Simulated scan of single mutants.
Amino acid sequence: MSDLDEDYTIIKEINQGNSAIVFLAEGLEDHKQFAVKNITKAHILESPQNILSLISEIEVMRKISHPHLMTLHKVYESNSTISLVMDFLPAGDFFQRLQHKHRFPESLSAKLMTNLLDALFYLHSNHIIHRDLKPENILMISKDNDYDFKICDFGLSCINKDVQFLQCGSPGYIAPEILNRQSYTNKVDIFSAGVILYIMLSGYSPFIGKDIDDVLMKNKECKIRVNKKPWNKVSELGIDFVKRLMNPDPNCRLSAEEALRHLWIVKYRSDYLDLVGISATMDVGLS
């Protein structure tokens, strides 16, 4: 479609990056608010990889439908831009939430991880790898809720049943097999989820360095330390879960389905079921 202005009123700019500007817009018919991501064609045409990334992002987002994944509603094209109309989530991203909260209790961390892993299980079941999972790409639904969100930014995602080789991701969240230039599978997303959980439980990153190269080196070495404060306040099950998600060997790393059945997840899901009056002795499977 080409007539964005006939369907939406642009209200204001809400974010800007190197290649795109995100606007708050309102539908002229339903008066609902949306985020419109305007991507300049000049940037897209700078390299074949930029073209492939945009095509992949649109292809993936048209394929998915899940409560914890960003929805792509419409795509418009003008002479100078491609516009993606998506959900508008004004509560900020999870990185901002981490900066404000610093650390999360295990019960709350388990709720968020259950939702995150459920979304990854859905993606992986549909042969989709996100490849850039990090707190900045998790948009919160509410300011009063710390575990409901939507994963966004599918620019590095791919749909493929085979192993992958493209090196991509964000320093500090990249699975070691990518940094070692090895082939990889959807378990790279599980490693990134493990890094997010590590930060939630400890309040700091597992890979701290003086610059990006130093961070990448430590990320590649993947020496996970859980032997100092505040890890002494984290349960053995919680520590075991972090280690299994961040195992440097992808063959030993949990899948999304296996992670959802880990005892740490089951324990806190059972506690939640008890709170809402459902028997915790029921079979706890995938949501």
Rank of each mutant, 00 (worst) to 15 (best):
S2L: 13
L263T: 13
N38Y: 14
T40M: 11
E177M: 00
H73G: 02
I44S: 06
L139K: 13
D211Q: 12
S235D: 07
S279K: 15
A280I: 00
C222G: 12
S235C: 09
C252L: 12
T114V: 00
P206Q: 14
G209W: 09
D213G: 13
Y8G: 06
N15I: 04
L84K: 00
R244M: 14
K161I: 05
N137C: 09
F94N: 03
S170P: 03
G169Y: 00
D189E: 06
N18E: 07
N232V: 08
Y204W: 11
T81R: 11
S255C: 04
S279I: 13
K229I: 06
A110H: 08
M282G: 03
C158S: 15
D283Q: 15
D240T: 10
F104D: 01
A25H: 05
S56H: 02
A259G: 05
S47Y: 05
N227G: 04
I64E: 11
L28K: 09
E258W: 08
M217P: 09
P90C: 01
I159N: 03
Y272H: 12
Q16T: 11
A42K: 15
L54D: 07
S65T: 13
K220D: 06
L275R: 14
K101R: 15
L263Y: 14
K228V: 15
H100S: 01
L245N: 10
S183Q: 01
I10M: 09
K243P: 04
N115M: 04
S202V: 09
N50R: 00
V226K: 05
W264M: 09
D118G: 10
N247W: 03
V276T: 12
Y8D: 05
I21G: 06
G172Y: 06
K41Y: 14
I21L: 10
S183G: 10
S19W: 09
D5Q: 14
I151Q: 09
D118W: 04
H124S: 04
S183M: 11
L28C: 01
A25L: 10
P135I: 00
K218M: 01
E221W: 04
I224L: 00
G27P: 09
S125T: 14
L139C: 15
Y76F: 14
I265S: 04
L245C: 03
L120P: 02
D162G: 12
H127K: 15
K41I: 11
Q33C: 11
K143S: 08
K12W: 02
L260H: 07
S65E: 15
M246E: 00
V85L: 08
I11L: 10
D271P: 04
I138G: 04
